[in-house]
C-alpha cells in the first residue's frame, strides 16, 4: 500500500510561485498514481475564488492546473470552511468543482486519515 500524502495549500494565487509549486507536488503525486489529497486553507482558499483574471497580471492561469486535478487522479480536494467564511467566499460559488468544505473538526479528521502531510 503506497503511503498517502495530504498537501495543505495556504498561499494566495498571486503572491509568487508558492501556490503553483504546492500544486506541482500534488500533480506529480497524481501522475505516479499515489494517494494524494489537497486542502486549501487560510489565504490558499483565494485560489478557489471565482472569475479570477490571470491575464491582468500577465500570469499563467493556475485554474487550468486546478481543473486538471481529476485528470491526474486527484479527487480528494477540500477547503477549510472557516477560511472561506472569514474571507466571504461562498462554498457554493467556487471556481473548481467538487471541492468539499470542511469544519475544523473535519480538517483534523482529514489530517489523521493521511500518512504524511505538507503544509505550504
Amino acid at each position: 500500500m503506497p503511503k498517502s500524502l495530504l498537501i495543505i495549500s495556504r498561499q494566495a494565487p498571486w503572491s509568487g510561485p508558492n501556490a503553483k509549486e504546492a500544486l506541482d507536488i500534488v500533480l506529480a503525486g497524481g501522475a505516479y498514481d499515489l494517494p494524494i489529497g489537497l486542502m486549501f486553507m487560510d489565504d490558499g482558499v483565494f485560489q478557489l475564488a471565482p472569475k479570477q483574471n490571470a491575464t491582468a497580471l500577465q500570469q499563467k492561469n493556475l485554474m487550468a492546473n486546478l481543473q486538471a486535478l481529476s485528470l491526474f487522479g486527484v479527487d480528494d480536494v477540500y477547503a477549510c470552511h472557516h477560511s472561506l467564511a472569514e474571507r466571504g467566499i461562498s462554498p457554493t460559488s467556487l471556481a473548481v468543482d467538487d471541492v468539499q468544505a470542511l469544519s475544523a473538526d473535519e480538517v483534523r479528521i482529514l489530517i489523521d486519515r493521511f500518512d504524511q502531510v505538507i503544509t505550504l
Binding site: P2, K3, L5, D24, I25, A28, G29, Y32, L34, Q116, I118, T119, L120
Partner: peptide
C-alpha cells in the same frame, strides 16, 4: 531531479520532516 524524488522519498521513509 524532479518532484518524483520527493514522492519516492516519502514512500520509502517512515517520517517526512519539512523545514521552511
Amino acid at each position: 531531479s524532479g518532484l518524483g524524488q520527493l514522492h519516492d522519498a516519502i514512500q520509502s521513509a517512515d517520517r517526512l520532516i519539512c523545514f521552511g
